[in-house]
Write a protein that binds this DNA or RNA. Structure first.
Length: 890
RNA sequence: GGGCGAAUAGCUCAGCUGGUUCAGAGCGCCUGCCUUACACGCAGGAUGUCGGGGGUUCGAAUCCCUCUUCGCCCACCA
């Protein structure tokens, strides 16, 4: 570790080596450091997923929090895991099979599931390795998978308990069905999306002659109509209630019924009823005892229940055909454009079909009641707060959760049906059953599996060994923070709160931090299908994990989205890389100026130098460091990670590198008084800065920190978080050095303004300084002269002649004689010719704007622009004439 | 249809409890510099009706109302 550092920071090897070293040290394993616990639960990624920016963001935030708390000395556990992602994973493997020309039915259930396992074993570790590449400090020894034996046992236990409490039931209801995945979906999995559709007005002939017109967005479902409904008070239809309608294209007569659920204002006020394919119609069908006719196959093609000529058509074709036939028969009154919400499968985007079938449900109301109360009593809070309202709203309008899925990949429903028709028992069991416990007859297990979320909602305790009362469970439940994207607030977070309360009696975490979404510059969500994604691993390779993390953390305020440009990684990530390089070089400089490793730089300059030996700049940087500690600590605590990152960035780049290091250079270079002080203070503040930055940029801070003398092979990741220090607070130093900075800035401005050669030293004079100011300038003369490149600084008197002036905030006036700094005649000439050029421009511009034709005909913006140009030039001319005057040009 | 949020520099955004970092940061742009840690750098500079309009206040980017434009969540007007 003592080889000379390269002038450019290269993360590529450093990061991988450090991660390996951290793992060997087992630094991230929960091991009981500290009394206070900090537990954070990773939202389990899909086991076969590849890391995308959403994961990158989510895990960076979690890692920052957990590293911060680990340094604060808490007993931290960041629990990682993956989920089996039933539909998604099964789909992937089915696609692979399709390439071989096979379906899952060709293999059979057992062989297919084995095939999925094989696939998972093959790809399953990748996502976790990718998380390691971005620095995630999880306790990998506790990694779980939702299909692990332990977690599967918990799933069964929960199912059976809920069944015994009558909170799980089997019902014949209309559910969301994905005709591509061939499975039921929960309401949350059927995502509503607004689409431009049509409203068709269909004329249904009345038995007694005449027509009743109904409006529908789905004309093809008319083949399954079993009634027409109107509002009971609707005068248009009062006489028709109870009469029959002859359903076109079929030979059926269906009744007209009255129900208050019908909105007379919409469409014609008459609605066709298809109980098998629409939620409202299903309700009304039950209420009025209408038949229901399922007109679709599972693939959403027309079934045998419709006339021959329609059979086998898919939904879209059937719609065309039905509309065409109705039109031919003169039964299509009109078609209107109509925008409405259509549900899509959240996995494959296919339009969801409402379908009548037997499914298992969780009765949610009792669970939601507790979960809502926990929120209302402040047992769980949301960041940002407004997300809590969404949570509450969902809880208040909770609907039962359809948990059965017609898949093979997942936890099979632990229910057995007795085959003996005289017994017919249905048993939910913790253990596999071979015979019916009632009659001893043969039993058959339910073929369906459970929704993946039915295992995910248990992980805060199932991953810790529940239902066994393990030590882990006692120690790490409940946890503290849950960090996730708002998309899965209902899928996962809300349900975890419910399960935690139901099975553990306590909410699983007290804070839910919902971060934003990663989007491209057009504010579209990054997604594979749009091809606008950024591969975090490519970023790691090109810029380093620290750069990735810095960009993510610094670029995102609480509750806002993270906008990145997929076509220009440089613009997004260069800032992080540059910062890393800056830090690296500051470290390189400091390490190279510490006179070898013998000096005891244990982080506290007080061990080395007495306070009385500190100069103004030393006191200033110590005070700034302390202020930054306070800001950063508070910001981390309040989840304002961007504030913390920016405060530390500013401290390192502006305060430490731009000012303090520049200030101490003369002291470091020679063997002069104050050298030891400068060394001690710069080492101490730099070391503190590394610790503050570590949660955000763990790799480079570790690499530099270990090179500081006296580290003895320890890791910064378990070094103590820097605490604020009363003795470091020094408002006077902040103000006084601020004045020095102001003076140096003013002198530099003058130099740039008047084109003084950068290499040329100049003289400067200060008058009207208040006593205090004068004393500071006098004492800090070497610093000022060096940083502003002066050959002399005089207080009190003003020389004769032309010069430039500036006034500081304390009233001091700065004067720089220009006669000896620049060739006055030449400068005057330059300024004069520039001035006359401007005057000419202004005249011709005046002419242009006086041209009535131009003003009248040109677009308003153009005229405005020209006016602004004129104003600009006038202003520039003013500045020039002032300058000319000050220089005494004639 | 209901609820919520956002609009600030060319771009991405901070700005928390009205007033001492209140008009900011990074990137981009302009000018000058390879000054022995760093050109992934240094120094200097330009850029804003804080979405429009109204109000409250001694004082508003900040609070209220309204309009416009985007976004999010929820919802069985077929």
């Amino acid at each position: 570790m003592s080889e000379p550092l390269a002038p450019q920071y290269d993360p590529s090897h450093i990061e991988a080596d450090l991660y390996r070293w951290w793992m060997n040290q087992r630094l991230f394993e929960a091991s009981g450091r500290g009394k206070q616990r900090y537990v954070i639960m990773m939202p389990p990624p899909n086991v076969t997923a590849n890391l995308h920016m959403g994961h990158g963001l989510n895990n960076t935030v979690q890692d920052v929090l957990v590293r911060f708390e680990r340094m604060r000395g808490r007993d931290t556990l960041w629990l990682p895991g993956t989920d089996h992602a039933g539909i998604a994973t099964q789909n992937v493997v089915e696609r692979l099979l399709a390439k071989e020309g096979k379906t899952r039915f060709d293999l059979g259930r057992e062989a297919f599931v084995e095939r999925v396992w094989e696939y998972v074993r093959q790809t399953g570790a990748t996502i976790l390795d990718q998380l390691k590449a971005i620095g995630s400090s999880c306790d990998w020894s506790r990694t779980y998978f939702t299909l692990d034996e332990d977690l599967s046992r918990a799933v069964r236990e929960v199912f059976v308990r809920l069944y015994e409490k009558d909170l799980v039931y089997r019902g014949h209801y209309l559910i969301n069905w994905c005709p591509r995945c061939l499975t039921a979906l929960s309401n949350e999995e059927a995502e509503k999306e607004e689409v431009d559709g049509h409203l068709w007005y269909l004329k249904y002939p009345l038995e007694t002659g005449g027509f009743i017109t109904v409006a529908t967005t789905r004309p093809e479902t008319m083949l399954g109509d079993t009634g027409v409904a109107v509002h009971p008070d609707d005068p248009r239809y009062r006489d028709l209630v109870g009469r029959q309608v002859l359903l076109p294209l079929t030979d059926r007569a269906i009744p007209i019924i009255a129900d208050a659920a019908i909105d007379p204002e919409f469409g014609t006020g008459a609605v066709k009823l298809t109980p098998a394919h629409d939620p409202l119609d299903f309700e009304l069908g039950r209420r009025h005892k209408l038949a229901s006719i399922d007109i679709f196959t599972p693939e959403a093609r027309m079934a045998e229940t419709v006339p021959d000529r329609f059979q086998g058509l898919d939904r879209a074709e059937a719609r065309k055909r039905v509309v065409a036939e109705l039109q031919a028969a003169g039964l299509l009154e009109k078609v209107e454009n109509h925008r409405h919400a259509v549900a899509h499968c959240y996995r494959c985007e296919t339009i969801v079909e409402p379908r009548l079938s037997d499914q298992w449900f969780v009765r949610m109301e009792p669970l939601a009641k507790q979960a809502l109360a926990a929120y209302r009593t402040g047992k769980v809070r949301f960041i940002p707060e407004r997300r809590g309202d969404e949570y509450a709203q969902w809880m208040e309008n909770i609907r039962d959760w359809c948990i059965s899925r017609q898949l093979w990949w997942g936890h099979r429903i632990p229910v057995w049906y007795c085959g003996n028709s005289s017994c017919g028992r249905i048993v939910a069991s913790r253990t596999d059953l071979a015979r019916c416990p009632g009659c001893g007859g043969s039993v058959e297990q339910d073929p369906d599996v459970l929704d993946t979320w039915f295992s995910s909602w248990l992980v805060p305790f199932s991953s810790l060994g529940w239902p066994d009362k393990t030590g882990d469970l006692r120690r790490y439940y409940p946890g503290n923070t849950l960090v996730t994207a708002p998309e899965i607030l209902f899928f996962w977070v809300a349900r975890m709160i419910m399960s935690g309360l139901e099975f553990m009696g306590e909410v699983p975490f007290d804070t839910v931090y919902l971060h934003g979404t990663v989007r491209d510059t057009q504010h579209r969500k990054m997604s594979k299908s749009l091809g606008n994604g950024i591969d975090p691993l490519e970023v790691v390779e090109r810029y380093g994990a620290d750069a990735l993390r810095y960009t993510v953390v610094a670029g995102m305020a609480v509750g806002t989205d993270l906008i990145l440009d997929p076509s220009d990684l440089e613009s997004s990530f260069a800032a992080g890389r540059n910062f890393a390089n800056k830090l690296w070089n500051a470290g390189r400089f400091i390490l190279g100026n510490l006179d070898g490793p013998t000096r005891p730089l244990a982080g506290d300059y007080r061990n080395v130098v007495p306070k009385s030996a500190l100069g103004l700049a030393d006191r200033w940087i110590i005070a700034r460091c302390d202020a930054t500690i306070r800001t950063a600590t508070e910001a981390y605590e309040r989840y304002r990670l961007n504030d913390a990152a920016n405060a530390i960035y500013h401290f390192i780049w502006s305060d430490l590198a731009d000012w303090y290091i520049e200030q101490i250079k003369p002291r470091l270079y020679g063997d002069v008084p104050g050298k030891d002080v400068a060394q001690a203070v710069v080492a101490a503040t730099f070391e503190t800065a590394l610790r503050m930055l570590h949660p955000v940029m763990p790799f480079i801070t570790e690499a530099l920190w270990q090179r500081l003398p006296g580290r003895g092979g320890a890791s910064i990741s378990v070094a103590p978080w820097p605490g604020p220090d009363q003795r470091a607070s020094d408002p006077a130093a902040l103000a006084q050095f601020g004045l020095v900075q102001e003076l140096v800035g003013a002198l530099r401005s003058i130099r740039a303004d008047y084109g003084i050669q950068p290499g040329l030293s100049i003289r400067a004079f200060i008058t009207d300084a208040p006593l205090a100011g004068a004393r500071i300038f006098d004492a800090e003369r070497p610093t000022i002269m060096r940083l502003a490149k002066l050959s002399g600084l005089e207080l009190g008197n003003l020389p004769e002649g032309a010069g430039a002036t500036a006034v500081l905030s304390d009233g001091s006036a700065v004067f720089v004689p220009l006669g000896d700094a620049i060739d006055l005649d030449k400068e005057c000439g330059r300024l004069k010719s520039e001035h006359s050029r401007l005057v000419q421009q202004i005249q011709s511009q005046n002419g242009k704007l006086a041209n009535e034709q131009f003003v009248a005909r040109a677009p308003a913006e153009v005229v405005d622009k020209e006016r602004r140009k004129l104003d600009d030039w006038r202003e520039q001319a003013d500045v020039l004439s002032q300058k000319l005057e000050r220089l005494g040009c004639k």
